[in-house]
Design a protein around this nucleic acid. Structure first.
Lengths: 234, 234
DNA sequence: AAATTATCCCTGTTATAACAGGAGTCTTTT
DNA sequence: AAAAGACTCCTGTTATAACAGGGATAATTT
């Protein structure tokens, strides 16, 4: 099989470039619309119309859609089209089951082993989160969602397992959809919904004991599941 | 945002259709070539040449490449191209770390809980595997690889967690590359490499105790890691 | 009137060709 | 001789248009 050899001297600098390709622009737009529930669930989307609306071509749209598919945000049936899958309790539970598997593992790996820098970063994020959780504005809801996402992913990242981070990101991204929807309806996330505050969670991860930390994370996730199930049943 | 409503009465029947789209054909070809190590590692591939060789267009190739990227088989650097990433010990270890996390969880879920049908299926697959493991021909090597893949995935599937199955499939697929390469060099998989035979593994999952079953799986995976590390260091 | 056929419009898919830009080479200029 | 520029050939990306086929409606046929 023929192959082309190409050196990539400047690769490192290029990697960090921002949304250069038009496919990425479409991707960002669509992802935002999906996460904010601006697209109908269960119905098939027209690639041509998406192209029109985003002022690009079918090619870029299809590329973006494929990425979204691999993020689990949409469902693609060959020769039939693409749609946003309906959230069933089973799917949600499955997601949280995997989250529990991942994140308890994370806690087990990190308990008492966080570097001072990491401790600091996590404590800051947690404090910010807990502050935002009490507010009800739509704006703070978005901030919360984004920060919550970053918080859990940062924690996972400390484990230094790229695969785990990647997988977890997908799961958490999918969860964001539903929680966002709830938040949009002006329901504040009171701490009793979360069980323990994020600050408490971080503190017990820092100090241990491991078993207790793991259990804290587990209930944290269970509460998230409960909250999400309620959000979808409305 | 405009949206098109389309009913999909015949969806169920269409879903099981075989490699209909030309993109899928390219995907299959490329995946095979990658798994069999027929493509150079680390160098950039030319999409145009791939299109020529597969007698399709750049479009289909790009689609296939994107899918491969999401399977973790290739690496895509926007505006630079796509290549098969070099396997480093770190990456391999990470993969097995995740496999361990997944598969010990699987065992924990399934131990003593397999239905008779499942027990039967697994025992059969395991027996077949153990038979193949002793042979050295290239043909049996391929059979082994495919069956090994199916075996672990079937086991995971019994847990009824679609996400877990999906994620695990990716990890195992990636592992296949290296093991295949080893197998191609006519090195039989002797049972001492595997530690315990697959039959023994299944049996202890069926009968318990759970702890022992989990440990069996764990060492099974550890041995796989060792074997893979050796294969790449040659 | 009922059943069949034809037509039209929409869908996803794909091939072609043009666009944008990097890299090496060769020529020109200083 | 060394540096600057132009040219050529490659790369990935993307827009356009044609292809293939389903579904609903209208026209035809039975």
């Amino acid at each position: 099989m023929l192959v082309n050899i190409r050196m990539a001297h400047t690769l490192v600098t290029m990697k960090t470039e921002h949304p250069t390709t038009s496919e990425q622009k479409v991707l960002n737009k669509l992802r935002k619309k999906i996460l904010e529930r601006e697209l109908p669930v269960g119905e098939f989307l027209s690639q041509r119309k998406l192209a029109e609306e985003t002022k690009t071509s079918v090619i870029s749209v299809r590329g973006a859609l494929r990425q979204l598919e691999n993020d689990g945000l949409i469902e693609n049936i060959p020769r039939w089209g693409v749609r946003i899958p309906k959230e069933t309790p089973e799917i949600i539970k499955d997601r949280y089951r995997i989250r529990e598997l991942f994140e308890t593992h994370v806690v087990e790996c990190l308990c008492r082993k966080l570097s001072p820098v990491q401790q600091d970063a996590l404590l800051k994020q947690a404090a910010e989160l807990d502050k935002l959780a009490e507010q009800t504005s739509a704006e703070s809801a978005f901030k919360f969602a984004r920060l919550h996402h970053d918080f859990h992913l940062y924690l996972a990242d400390c484990c230094e397992s790229p695969l785990l981070t990647k997988f977890l990101e997908r799961v958490i991204n999918a969860s964001l959809m539903v929680l966002n929807a709830k938040r949009m309806r002006e329901k504040p996330i009171t701490s009793d919904l979360i069980g323990t505050t994020h600050t408490e969670l971080v503190e017990i991860i820092i100090t241990g004991p491991t078993k207790k930390a793991v259990e804290s994370m587990r209930t944290h996730i269970h509460n998230g599941l409960k909250s999400e199930l309620e959000a979808t049943s409305e």
